[in-house]
Design a protein around this nucleic acid. Structure first.
Lengths: 144, 144
DNA sequence: TCTTATTTTAGAATCCTTATAATTTAGTTT
DNA sequence: AAACTAAATTATAAGGATTCTAAAATAAGA
């Protein structure tokens, strides 16, 4: 399943004329294996055992390549560094104010939002993003 | 109207034990007078005629104070620097992909989103934000 | 007016990200 | 299988946004 997606992604890379290097493969594999939405630095640290000589620049370079091809999405919130999400299906994020956990959040179409926005503002709308904030179940329990 | 809001904000500051300095006043006044959603640096530049000796740090310090008190909201998008919005009423933003313009966008309650999110994820939801992207009317015309 | 805690200032420091230039390498061609 | 070449990696420097620091200035109360 994850393996399947990885193979598809590798094919997409090849078709785009992008070489498959061990580092690139590892970054992609890590992104696909985790449910977290890691920062560049988290990816870097997660792979430093396997690739002790890998440069942070390599992580950034590859994330940029994946972004350009549409294999990942960049998430920017208030905190300092970007997070990366390789789930490219339509979904939103819900973020815990306490622990910072980011959870994928699916629900029925909000496409009418885009239509409504077009009517109200006259924009030619291409997409939208939404984040919901709150306290996750774990942190609700921890709170006395 | 803007004057009214400014007075209210100043009162809020006083009640929070925050001193009203000329620089602080000017930053707040500028934020309230513009429909743009300026960056810290834009505010700094806009005030450099009035306050040639003001430090950028002062702008950042004051924005932080306003944020803590809830007088402004911080908007973080993909681009490098944060933008600040002193419209604290419920609204969303629609952003032009071409020129970067940010327009306030009002429409009927999306509170059901928060309710639905609670049901699906078990989070205790406090708020949400949404950005819609597209091409504004000006840029649609410019495009041949 | 005097006092003091807060604010401002200038500049250094930090963090995240991108640029540079030299070295290595993936993948094709011979 | 060896050679080739464009692309990728590396280490490091550079960049931009923001925060920190310590000294000087000042708002607002006594």
């Amino acid at each position: 399943m994850t393996e399947q997606r990885l193979q598809e992604a590798l094919t997409t890379l090849k078709n785009s004329g992008v070489r498959i290097t061990p580092q690139r493969h590892a970054v992609l594999e890590y992104l696909m294996s985790t449910m977290k939405h890691p920062t560049a630095d988290e990816i870097y640290k997660a792979l430093e055992d396997k690739f002790p000589n890998m440069s942070v620049a390599t992580v950034y370079n590859n994330l940029r390549v994946f972004l350009d091809i549409g294999l990942v999405r960049e998430l920017t919130y208030g905190d300092s560094s970007s997070r990366f999400d390789c789930n490219t299906t339509e979904h939103y994020h819900i973020i815990c104010d306490e622990c910072g956990k980011i959870v994928d959040f699916h629900y029925p179409s909000l496409n009418e939002v885009e239509q409504l926005a077009e009517q109200v503002t006259g924009f030619d709308v291409t997409n939208h993003r939404m984040e919901v904030y709150g306290t996750c179940e774990d942190c609700q329990q921890t709170k006395h």
